[in-house]
Amino acid sequence: MPVLSVRDLVMHYKTKMGYVKAVDGISFDLNAGESLGIVGESGCGKTSVSMTILRLLPDNAEFRGGHVYFNDGSGEVDLVTLPEDEMRKYRWKGISMIFQAAMNSLNPVYRVGDQIVEAILNHYPDTTIDEARKKVAELFELVGLDPKRMDQYPHQYSGGMKQRAVIALALSCDPKVIIADEPTTALDVIVQDKILKEMKKIQKKLNMAMIYISHDIAVIAEVSDKIAVMYAGKFVELADSITIFKRPRHPYTFGLMSSFPSITGEKKKLFTIPGEPPNLLNPPKGCRFAPRCFNATEKCRREDPPFLEIEPDHYLACWNPVKREGEEK
């Protein structure tokens, strides 16, 4: 039974120039203890999906429909139907979030340690301040921060230190699901490696589910059990990570996976997907990837391909998928 079940989620932003179709029919299931990676081009809607799930949307966002079923074992609730004060109980303790923007979590006028202490006290009112500070010191060690620096302010931290403080905050209330939006962009690879391993350990221990959003396919490869590939507001492919990496069917996934810059071997020519990123104010008709696709046919330019399960646990939205080896079509 999934801890999180998202169905046909649609959210558009209203702007002077029209609607930005940032989330346009997203569905997926996430089981307890499982990690889902979401990859996709900058601006395709990854952050918007998470903000829609948590209902942390800006004023110009218009929720157009869909369901977010959450079940921590005590029964299923559809988060989209809850009044705000009910919803608040699920945020942080049910589903917590590591924001792409550290400033969305850290208040500049409070000491970093105090902010995490406060989060713990809010959700575990029986804790004493000393206990909470001890827990924060442990979390600091875990993310590689010197506990001596708990009493400094966010502006006294480096970019990566702030990011680590935000990770410590997200872990502080033992949530059932963590959505981590580009959690390690400001970290060197050694610290990143350590934190990802620590998060895996905690995940195992608490049977927590994770959603990792990252542009870094190497990070996604390390942490995800399954991967969703997003393009222009929609998921185009979703399967276990090995399938996505080794046997992708969607032409966009195929492009993403076929070339990475590396630090060993020949200095390869860098990879780009031809054409321009799609305009979400006015997305292409038919398949949104068609203008940039090497496999596109007339039908692709006319009709939007449905997101279907083509084999157990492998979902695809494509009229003319990449052939499998030894397959005629």
Binding site: G40, G159, A186, H215, P277
Partner: peptide, 17 residues
Amino acid sequence: DEPTSMLDVSVRTGVME
């Protein structure tokens, strides 16, 4: 300072070029 840390490979390549 980390100018392309949030960009996917494809977009990043364009910016680096």
